[in-house]
Computed example of a mutant assay.
Amino acid sequence: MIVSEKDRDILARTLWGEARGESLAGQIAVAWTIRNRVFDGKARSWWGEGYSGVCQKPYQFSCWNKSDPNYVFLIGIKQIVFRELAQARIAADQVIDGKVDDPTGGATHYHATTMPKAPAWALKAKQTLKLGRHVFFKDVP
């Protein structure tokens, strides 16, 4: 699969929006969740196509919702702090280029531990990893 610069940028911005403040390992885990959706058999019909398609498909990653406070940063109206975006770009490139193994065990979903209540889908899914402020899952019904 050929990955464009736009795909790399959108993935890095998604990592910033979803996992800024996490360690590089935490951002890599989030990036792998997205990569697992990109390469899932139902990619074209459900998740979206390619990294940009998966990241920006409505309601998959809340940072791309127009009502989310991160959105204005993701689309460039406000500037992201350079070092924060640089770390997200490193995580994105390492995952896209296959330089790091999947720490999530094939997760396609995650949620933040800061949520007051776990999402309903998490109750029937298999937890694969807890890292930083995120819990990762696969086999989500």
Rank of each mutant, 00 (worst) to 15 (best):
V3E: 05
E5W: 15
E5T: 15
D9Q: 13
I10Q: 00
L11P: 01
A12L: 03
R13W: 10
T14Q: 09
T14R: 02
L15C: 04
L15S: 00
W16P: 01
G17M: 06
G17E: 05
G21F: 04
G21W: 01
E22K: 03
S23K: 06
S23H: 08
L24I: 00
A25E: 11
A25T: 11
A25I: 14
Q27S: 06
I28D: 00
A29R: 02
A29H: 04
A29Y: 05
V30Y: 04
A31P: 03
A31G: 02
W32E: 00
W32V: 00
T33C: 09
T33N: 12
T33D: 05
T33R: 14
I34E: 00
N36S: 09
N36R: 12
N36M: 15
R37I: 01
V38C: 10
D40Q: 12
G41Y: 09
G41N: 10
K42S: 13
K42F: 05
K42E: 07
R44H: 13
R44C: 08
S45F: 14
W46V: 06
W46C: 05
W46Q: 14
W46F: 12
W46I: 06
G48S: 15
G48C: 03
E49P: 04
E49N: 10
G50D: 09
Y51V: 05
S52M: 11
S52N: 11
G53D: 06
V54E: 05
V54C: 07
C55P: 08
C55F: 02
P58Y: 05
Q60D: 05
Q60T: 01
S62I: 08
W64T: 02
N65I: 03
K66M: 15
K66Y: 12
D68H: 07
P69E: 15
N70G: 09
N70A: 15
N70K: 02
Y71K: 01
Y71M: 13
V72Q: 10
K78G: 13
Q79K: 14
Q79A: 12
V81D: 09
F82A: 08
F82S: 04
R83T: 10
R83I: 02
E84F: 01
E84N: 11
L85Y: 04
A86I: 01
A86Q: 13
A86Y: 11
Q87C: 06
A88M: 05
R89T: 07
R89K: 11
I90M: 03
I90V: 11
A92C: 13
D93M: 06
Q94F: 14
V95H: 02
I96P: 01
I96K: 00
I96Q: 00
K99A: 10
K99N: 06
V100T: 15
D101G: 14
T104V: 07
G105Q: 14
G105Y: 04
T108C: 07
Y110S: 07
H111W: 08
A112T: 12
A112V: 02
T114A: 12
T114R: 11
T114Q: 04
T114P: 02
M115S: 03
M115Y: 09
P116L: 07
P119N: 12
P119F: 15
P119V: 08
A120M: 04
A120K: 08
W121E: 08
A122F: 12
L123E: 15
L123H: 06
K124Y: 01
A125D: 01
A125R: 04
L129E: 02
K130R: 13
K130Y: 04
K130E: 05
L131Y: 06
L131F: 08
G132Y: 03
G132T: 14
V135M: 07
F136E: 00
F137R: 12
D139Q: 11
P141L: 07
P141D: 12
